[in-house]
């Protein structure tokens, strides 16, 4: 569970407020997508939810942040990271720097937590298989492509089995098969009760997997609701978030879309509407 109460944030020594008066509650096991134009504060929000703000980046936080029952401000980072995973935008920055194979990299966090060896090996193997990177197990993480490094970064958090997983554009460098795999894996984690917060520009994929969408613009939470409402909203285009191709198609082909039917955000919704609208 994640709860933000009137959260505002600005970086040290800058006048600009990056996040303004954000209040929201994310129940356990919800998969929440975060959309917004570049510079809206999405990455900052991810760092707040995972405790990297204020513990690593400093700055001025007002309001309260509670994650998994702990006040983020009053809990030391090592305690927080045992239950909250953050997959950052640039996977390269996330590599430990201490390990020279992908399998060791995945085991790194578990070693630090003192997880018994047998358990560690089985979790690492499962994660390697789940993300289809078993063939990379013995490779150096530094010699992988950007997409492969992204899978390793995601794996290194999944293997920890955190109760809350926050991911900042985790599939930006992945091919369609790789990003499909990641979206499927996140859906499964949600089924197991993991709370997932996913910052993502790929609206079509987000619409398929998210329970709820937060639209962040200029540091403000402008909209919060199910994908079918938020992603179909007119304002999204004005805010520079854009819309799914399915929504765009129904808008552009308005005369072929059944009168009064809500705009689609997924393939299934678009197919149903256009089938009904067909003469």
């Amino acid at each position: 569970m994640i709860r933000l109460e009137s959260l505002s944030y600005r970086y040290a020594e800058t006048p600009t407020t990056v996040l303004r008066q954000i209040s929201l509650t994310i129940p356990k096991g919800q998969l929440v997508g975060v959309v917004g134009p570049s510079g809206a504060g999405k990455t900052t929000l991810a760092q707040v939810m995972s405790g990297f703000i204020p513990h690593v980046f400093g700055g001025e936080v007002t309001g309260a942040v509670t994650v998994a029952g702990r006040s983020v401000r009053n809990t030391p980072l090592p305690l927080l990271v045992s239950d909250i995973g953050l997959v950052s935008q640039n996977p390269f920055n996330q590599l430990s720097g201490a390990k020279f194979s992908v399998a060791e990299e995945l085991a790194f966090g578990l070693e630090n937590l003192g997880v018994p060896r047998g358990e560690m090996v089985s979790r690492v193997d499962e994660t390697l298989r789940r993300l289809r990177i078993a063939h990379l197990a013995e490779r150096s993480p530094y010699q992988l492509s950007g997409g492969q490094q992204q899978l390793v970064a995601i794996g290194s958090m999944m293997v920890m089995r955190p109760g809350v997983l926050v991911l900042d554009e985790p599939t930006s460098q992945l091919d369609p098969a790789g990003s499909g795999l990641v979206f499927d894996a996140l859906g499964e984690l949600r089924e197991r009760g993991v709370t997932v917060v996913l910052i993502e520009h790929k609206l079509e994929q987000l619409a398929e997997v998210a329970d709820r969408i937060l639209a962040l613009v200029d540091g403000e939470l402008r909209m919060d609701g199910p994908p079918s409402t938020v992603l179909a909203a007119d304002e999204l285009a004005d805010w520079g978030i854009g819309r799914t191709r399915f929504t765009a198609a129904a808008v552009a082909a308005a005369t072929h879309w059944p009168c009064g039917r809500p705009l689609p955000v997924t393939l299934a919704e678009a197919a149903a509407g256009f089938a009904e609208g067909a003469p």
Partner: peptide
């Protein structure tokens, strides 16, 4: 191992003989 564009998947689902590839074409 690549997925067809959104409009290709949509028009296939709709049973079009020749699928569209962009919103504009649809």
């Amino acid at each position: 191992a690549v997925e067809a564009p959104s409009m290709t998947r949509l028009t296939r689902r709709l049973g079009w003989n020749r699928s569209a590839i962009t919103v504009e074409e649809l």
